[in-house]
């Protein structure tokens, strides 16, 4: 039981300081500041178009930060981009799945670029997210919820300490949400950190959870 509480990840710290972002003339992010440490979860909330996705993409380094800074363990992420990228797992709106490849192949190729994965690990991950029967099926024939689960299987496989999850519950049923919350709890126990944007509260009762409202 206690084995679960062994910290898998070293101490880590993400600091976002006074982040601003303009999209055209629209001042989207107006001075966002927060910090996040191992074991903590931040849920970004806000109405549609409030800039949740943009904020997550800024943190991940997909959008250049126009003003303000984003520090990973005290170092600006832009200065040590490769090391930072290895430390994060970003799951966006688009699930980055090839429709003509099977679930198993998709995961092997996606994770294989980042770390060593065996097909036994991939099968295990697909079992944990509840779709072992889909392993050999092309993603094209899967339902939207099943595709989401394939993408979420990366959470089981990854070694990255910081998860950035953009609307991870889209298309998931109640069991799927419970499964996702289980994965998130486990990650937080191991010393990982999560920043997520979702409309429904995730892990609402978790002691290390904070909400950030975007206006």
């Amino acid at each position: 039981m206690f084995a679960d509480y062994v910290l898998r990840h070293h101490a880590m710290r993400l600091d976002v300081r006074d982040m601003h972002l303009w999209r055209g003339d629209h001042h989207l992010l107006r001075g966002i500041s927060f910090s996040l440490q191992g074991g903590q979860l931040i849920q970004i909330q806000g109405h549609n178009g409030a800039g949740k996705t943009s904020l997550l993409r800024c943190v991940a380094g997909l959008l250049p930060v126009e003003s303000g800074e984003c520090l990973w363990n005290g170092v600006p992420t832009q200065r040590a981009l490769m090391a930072f990228n290895q430390s994060i797992l970003y799951l966006g709106h688009s699930q980055a799945l090839k429709l003509d490849l099977t679930s198993k192949e998709n995961l092997e190729f996606a994770m294989g670029l980042r770390q060593h994965v065996t097909s036994a690990q991939v099968l295990n991950a697909l079992t944990l997210v509840g779709i072992p029967q889909c392993a050999e099926l092309p993603v094209r024939v899967l339902s939207a919820g099943q595709r989401r689960r394939v993408a979420l299987a990366q959470l089981v496989l990854t070694n990255s300490p910081l998860w950035i999850l953009d609307e991870p519950t889209t298309n998931l049923d109640a069991q799927g949400v419970a499964m996702l919350e289980g994965l998130m709890t486990h990650h937080l126990q191991q010393g990982g950190a999560i920043i997520t944007a979702a409309h429904q509260p995730l892990l609402a009762a978790h002691p290390a959870r904070r909400e950030w409202m975007l206006h």
């Binding site: 490769m82 430390s87 688009s94 699930q95 980055a96």
Partner: peptide, 19 residues
Amino acid sequence: LEDGVMEQWVLTGQPLPWL
């Protein structure tokens, strides 16, 4: 690019020119 794979390649933390 359209299905988001390229985004993940950018974020692999591996040298993108090589990929």
